[in-house]
């Protein structure tokens, strides 16, 4: 049986990297006494898969992983058991049994929503909010994206599904599919680059609000809908 878990990450633990968060949950699952399934073979490992890595320094309230369990009480009980073994800064928000045939967390990810706040050291132009709207109103945003294999030219506009100013912050919904993932800081760097604003070190504080999959009708819905 497959189970999907949603969790948040905030405060000092935002400095714990993705791999270490995976190890953290491997141990947490043992502490919680969850009857997780193991792979066969010489060095068995827990069957667990994480949706989308979160960069060091980012916070989130929309992280997910799937695990295969050998036995299961109910969602409520597992939520409670996991909740009891968490550290400050990581909260388990939801547990859901997956339907048979549902794709795994990692493969399902289609988009992610972020809030971007600015560091005090970034001197924002007075009309930055209007500029952001016109930035998004362009028909194409041609950029060069660095990939593992080198560089490639893309139209960033196609990957930004929503971009708007919310108070002092920027909300964005962007492509997060494996291979086509867009980092929120890349969108902001492109915007400020077009504006001609020099960026200081670590100009943004980034918070992931939700991770989405695409339903058959094309709608974006959270990984636990």
């Amino acid at each position: 049986m497959k189970v999907r878990v949603k969790f948040s990450k905030y405060g000092p633990v935002k400095f714990v990297g993705h791999l270490d968060i995976m190890h953290y949950f491997q141990k947490a699952v043992r502490r919680a006494g969850i009857d997780i399934a193991y792979s066969e073979g010489f060095s068995p490992h827990q069957i667990m898969s994480f949706a989308s890595p979160l960069s060091v320094g980012h916070t989130s309230e929309g992280e997910y992983f799937d695990m295969e369990v050998r036995s299961f009480t109910d969602e409520e009980d597992m939520l409670k058991k996991l909740g009891q073994v968490m550290v400050e800064g990581i909260d388990v928000l939801q547990v859901r049994i997956l339907d048979k045939g549902e794709g795994n967390a990692m493969a399902s990810v289609a988009a992610a929503a972020y809030l971007v706040a600015f560091s005090d050291k970034l001197s924002l132009p007075a009309n930055w909010d209007k500029e952001l709207i016109s930035f998004y109103q362009q028909t194409h945003i041609e950029v060069v994206k660095k990939t593992k294999k080198g560089q490639k030219e893309i139209d960033l506009k196609e990957s930004i599904y929503q971009l708007e100013v919310r108070g002092d912050t920027v909300y964005m919904l962007v492509d997060a599919g494996s291979g086509s993932n867009i980092k929120p800081e890349f969108v902001m760097e492109t915007f400020f680059g077009q504006l001609g604003v020099m960026l200081p070190e670590y100009p943004f504080r980034i918070h992931r609000i939700e991770t989405y999959k695409r339903r058959e009708d094309g709608q974006l819905v959270p990984l636990i809908a």
């Binding site: 405060g11 000092p12 714990v16 953290y24 060091v56 670590y202």
Partner: peptide
């Protein structure tokens, strides 16, 4: 954000 392995310095472990 600048230093290697920042989790060395944050405490708060299990």
């Amino acid at each position: 954000m600048k230093v290697e392995k920042p989790a060395r310095y944050i405490g708060g472990e299990v």
